[in-house]
């Protein structure tokens, strides 16, 4: 559905994105992940035909973004970082205008607008001026304008930024509901969002793709390695020497106090078992032993900042 190859964009001497190549299949929900300033928005702007790249090509549904921008734009719904809403228009009037701009046939405009309003739960505010809406509602109007023409491809640039947790959950549900009917690219730097909605992730850092895979295989990238959090009743000055006999333990680090430790190990459940029995027999008073999965956050931090997360938060 979307093909991007060797995409490069220079802003003066600064290279925003550098030779990006990826492809998205029809019906996929792809998370576009990266720290701030990694080039996410730039890539999205190029795919929507909003701006031209310095080198490389992008195509949507077989149409080149630069040779055939009109055909591409007919097939794309785009939510920029700031929702492009006119403050002096009514919600319904605005959506009608966008539908007409996107060349929805005249007799279908009302139906499409109704559909978008229903999907984004805007029914109660549809007769209000956009100027008077809260930020969350404006964001929803932004999403409604992206889906109002029922486009094949949806490109959402940080759709949940600035919303309260309930609204975030609603928007995520909405994105899930849109799955299947549309090909969706979602940019964000919020990881749970990607985990909640996307099947595939493209992680980008400093203008380059550093990983491109399904969430599952990214999260289990370092299979066999795990980390245990241990909470003890007594202070232990050196847990490392206690565990020295277990060869599978790779490192032992001190937590917040001498009662909390984290243990990295390479191995399966039998190693966990031997560690726990060792601690119990030493009489340290084992209160808690939790395995911390190396989740997407670790992978993300490792790939983008070249470091492991501090303590592998659960």
């Amino acid at each position: 559905m979307i093909q991007v190859s060797d995409l490069t964009k220079d802003y003066g001497p600064r290279r925003a994105i550098d030779k990006l190549s990826f492809s998205v299949n029809k019906g996929d929900v792809v998370g576009f992940l990266g720290p701030n300033g990694a080039g996410k928005s730039t890539t999205m702007k190029i795919i929507t035909g909003f701006m031209a790249p310095s080198h490389g090509t992008a195509s949507v549904a077989g149409f080149d973004v630069f040779e055939n921008p009109i055909e591409v734009k007919k097939r794309i719904g785009y939510l920029p970082e700031t929702p492009p809403v006119y403050a002096d228009m009514y919600v319904r009037e605005y959506l009608r205008y966008v539908a007409a701009l996107k060349q929805v046939p005249k007799d279908k405009i009302e139906k499409y607008v109704d559909h978008a309003i229903e999907k984004t739960n805007l029914g109660e505010v549809q007769k209000r001026l956009i100027h008077h809406l809260s930020k969350g509602f404006k964001q929803r109007v932004g999403i409604a304008q992206a889906i109002v023409s029922d486009p094949e491809v949806l490109i959402l640039d940080e759709p949940t930024v600035g919303l309260d947790p309930k609204q975030v959950a609603e928007i995520r549900d909405l994105i899930k509901a849109l799955k299947g009917q549309h090909t969706i690219i979602l940019s964000t730097h919020i990881l749970p969002e990607v985990e909640a909605t996307c099947e595939k992730v493209i992680i980008i850092n400093k203008g380059r793709i550093v990983a491109e895979d399904s969430i599952h295989s990214l999260a289990t990238m370092e299979k066999g390695h795990q980390r245990l959090h241990v909470r003890l009743r007594k202070d232990v000055s050196d847990l490392k020497s206690v565990l020295a006999g277990v060869s599978a333990v790779t490192s032992v680090t001190l937590g917040a106090s001498q009662k909390e430790w984290s243990i990295d190990l390479a191995g399966g459940e039998d190693v966990v078992e031997s560690i726990s029995s060792l601690i119990v027999t030493q009489g340290f008073g084992l209160l808690e032993l939790t395995p911390a999965k190396r989740d997407l956050e670790d992978v993300f931090l490792k790939l983008t900042y070249g470091q492991e997360s501090k303590g592998g938060a659960v």
Binding site: F50, K73, P80, T82, Y86, L101
Partner: peptide, 14 residues
Amino acid sequence: KLRTFDLLLTSPVT
């Protein structure tokens, strides 16, 4: 300024 220009530039209009 209000970034609504983005909408026009990403719509199928010349």
